[in-house]
C-alpha cells in the first residue's frame, strides 16, 4: 500500500509504503519511498508491460496551500497485489 505521509514540520507530503502479508490484518511500515523537493500526494500505482509505474501529481508551491485548504490528510493506493507476494 502506497500512501501520502506528511512531514509534521513542513506539512509537505511524501510517498511512503507499507506491506501486509496477512490480507490486510497487520501492516509493516517500509518508510518513505519517494521524497522530492516539492509536495507529493495521491500516489497511483499501476503496472504496464513488465514495469510497475507510480503516477502522481505535484503542484509546486501552490499545492501546499491548496493542501491545507482542502484538508487532504491521507491518500492510499494499492500496489498490484501479485507484485507484493
Amino acid at each position: 500500500m502506497f500512501f501520502e505521509t506528511k512531514n509534521p514540520i513542513s506539512s509537505q507530503g511524501d510517498i511512503a509504503a507499507a506491506v501486509s502479508k496477512d490480507a490486510g490484518t497487520t501492516w509493516q511500515q517500509l518508510g518513505v519511498v519517494l521524497d522530492e523537493e516539492w509536495h507529493l500526494s495521491y500516489p497511483y500505482v499501476f503496472s504496464y508491460g513488465n514495469e510497475v509505474n507510480i503516477l502522481f501529481m505535484y503542484w509546486g508551491k501552490l499545492c501546499i496551500i491548496d493542501h491545507i485548504f482542502l484538508s487532504i490528510s491521507v491518500f492510499l493506493s494499492f500496489a498490484l497485489l501479485d507484485r507484493l507476494t
Partner: peptide, 17 residues
C-alpha cells in the same frame, strides 16, 4: 507551466522509483 504530471517507474519495487 505551474504544474506537471509525472510518471515514475519502479527500479526496485516497492522502495526505489
Amino acid at each position: 507551466k505551474k504544474g506537471i504530471l509525472k510518471l515514475y517507474r519502479a527500479v526496485d519495487f516497492p522502495l526505489k522509483w
